[in-house]
């Protein structure tokens, strides 16, 4: 028997006892089984994919989806397409930037869009401030890489001001000059 994801022979046979269609067996090679088993929640990628598929049925057209796929986070640069394929987001600001698109997904997965449990004792900075901090740190690393130490030190001061709370209204900047989207 072959692995369900590649051509190698399946040596792992994993039974999911509770699934949407009752118990089912997944046949995998060692490499894919490791990936499968290393995710504690049963296949988060599958959960994300199936929730997205449901969303698609609910009236999003192909064009709308293509446009959504191109949408990128101004902080970390991840596109919705990349998220859709990896099942992992790029930074905390994605929950703010892709909010409209993520919320139906969260509703699908969790049957809720509202956290009611524990909260950290320390008040977190606003999402915009944290997003801006991530941006500044990346720009600073880039400046150091290009040996532009003057710019790096300006950016470092901005980052410090931000982290000490002197700039509580900061927002991620949409267009970063010279910022490569990798």
């Amino acid at each position: 028997m072959k692995c369900q994801y590649c051509e190698k022979p399946a040596t792992f046979h994993i039974t999911e006892l509770v699934g949407p269609d009752g118990p089912s067996v997944t046949h995998l090679c060692e490499e894919h089984a490791r990936k499968y088993l290393s995710s504690e929640s049963p296949t988060p990628l599958a959960a994300v994919a199936s929730a997205l598929a449901k969303q698609l049925k609910l009236g999003q057209t192909k064009e709308e989806l293509a446009e959504l796929d191109r949408k990128a986070c101004p902080v970390c640069g991840i596109t919705f397409y990349e998220f859709r394929n990896a099942g992992r987001l790029g930074c905390p600001f994605d929950y703010t930037h892709f909010r409209k698109d993520l919320e139906p997904l969260l509703a699908n997965i969790h049957d809720s869009v509202e956290h009611i449990g524990k909260r950290p004792k320390r008040a977190a900075h606003a999402a915009g401030v944290q997003g801006r901090a991530i941006q500044l740190r990346r720009e600073m690393e880039e400046a150091v890489e290009h040996e532009d130490y003057e710019r790096a030190s300006v950016l470092r001061d901005q980052l410090r001001a931000l982290e000490s709370g002197d700039d509580a209204g900061a927002q991620p900047q949409a267009e970063q000059p010279g910022q490569g989207d990798c």
């Binding site: 994300v48 992992r88 929950y95 869009v113 449990g117 977190a124």
Partner: peptide, 23 residues
């Protein structure tokens, strides 16, 4: 300072863990 959202709670890399982050 943890990544937290006023509505979504603790933010995680995968949306399947968001909120409590509890398994």
């Amino acid at each position: 300072t943890y990544a937290v959202h006023p509505q979504y709670g603790y933010l995680t890399a995968c949306p399947t863990n968001v909120g409590t982050g509890l398994r």
